[in-house]
Simulated assay, not measured.
Amino acid sequence: MSSGRPAGLTGVAAYRLPDLAVTGAPRRHDVPQLCDQVRAACARAPGRHVVCDVSAVSSADLATVDALARMQLAARRAGSGLRLRDPSPALSALLQLVGLPGLGGLVIEMGRQPEQREIAGGVQEAVESGDPAL
Rank of each mutant, 00 (worst) to 15 (best):
Ala45Trp: 06
Gly105Asp: 08
Ala93Arg: 15
Ala74Asn: 00
Ala25Ser: 09
Asp30Pro: 08
Gln116Lys: 06
Val107Ile: 10
Ala74Pro: 06
Ser58Lys: 05
Asp36Asn: 14
Leu73Asp: 00
Ala41Thr: 02
Ser59Tyr: 02
Ala126Ile: 10
Ala40Glu: 12
Leu17Ser: 08
Ala45Ser: 11
Gly8Asp: 10
Val107Asp: 05
Arg27Ser: 14
Leu9His: 11
Gly4Gln: 12
His49Gly: 03
Ala13Val: 14
Gly130His: 15
Pro132His: 10
Val65Phe: 04
Asp36Gln: 15
Ser129Met: 13
Leu94His: 08
Ile108Tyr: 05
Ala14Trp: 09
Arg48Ile: 07
Arg5Ile: 01
Ala7Phe: 03
Gln116Arg: 10
Met110Gln: 14
Pro114Arg: 13
Ser88Phe: 03
Arg70Met: 09
Val50Cys: 00
Gly111Ser: 08
Asp66Ile: 04
Leu68Tyr: 02
Gly105Phe: 04
Glu115Ala: 09
Arg117Ile: 11
Arg77Ser: 01
Gln124Tyr: 09
Ser59Pro: 00
Ser92Phe: 07
Leu17Lys: 10
Pro101Val: 13
Ser2Met: 07
Val38Lys: 00
Leu95Gly: 07
Cys35Thr: 06
Cys35Val: 07
Arg70Gln: 14
Gly130Met: 14
Ala21Ser: 08
Leu91Ile: 07
Pro87Trp: 01
Ala63Lys: 00
Gly121Thr: 03
Ser2Phe: 08
Leu91Ala: 06
Pro18Gly: 07
Gly11Thr: 10
Ala60Asn: 01
Gly47Met: 08
Asp36Gly: 15
Ala93Cys: 07
Pro89Ser: 09
Leu62Tyr: 11
Ala93Lys: 13
Val54Lys: 02
Asp36Ser: 14
Leu34Pro: 01
Gly24Glu: 02
Leu95Arg: 06
Thr64Cys: 13
Ala75Cys: 09
Ser80Gln: 04
Leu82Pro: 01
Asp30Glu: 13
Cys35Lys: 03
Glu109Met: 13
Gly105Glu: 10
Ala40Asn: 09
Gly102Lys: 15
Leu106Tyr: 01
Val12Met: 14
Gln124Arg: 15
Leu94Val: 08
Ala25Leu: 04
Gly24Trp: 09
Val123Asn: 03
Val57Gly: 01
Pro87Ser: 04
Ser3Asp: 10
Val51Tyr: 03
Val54Met: 04
Glu125Gln: 13
Gly8Ile: 04
Val57His: 04
Met71Asp: 03
Pro87Asp: 03
Ala78Asn: 04
Gly47Ile: 10
Ser3His: 05
Ser129Arg: 15
Gly130Ala: 15
Pro32Met: 11
Pro32Thr: 10
Arg16Ser: 12
Arg39Lys: 14
Leu84Asp: 02
Arg85Phe: 05
Gly102Ser: 14
Gly104Leu: 15
Gly11Pro: 07
Leu103Ile: 11
Arg112Cys: 10
Leu103Arg: 14
Arg85Gln: 06
Ala40Thr: 09
Thr64Asp: 01
Gln113Cys: 06
Met71Pro: 01
Ala25Asn: 07
Ala63Gly: 05
Glu118Phe: 08
Val107Ala: 09
Leu17Asp: 13
Ala126Gln: 12
Ala74Val: 03
Gly130Asp: 15
Val50Gln: 00
Ser3Ile: 05
Arg76Cys: 08
Ala14Ser: 13
Leu95Glu: 07
Pro101Ala: 12
Val50Gly: 02
Ile108Glu: 11
Gln113Glu: 14
Pro46His: 12
Ser92Gly: 12
Thr10Ile: 11
Ala133Glu: 13
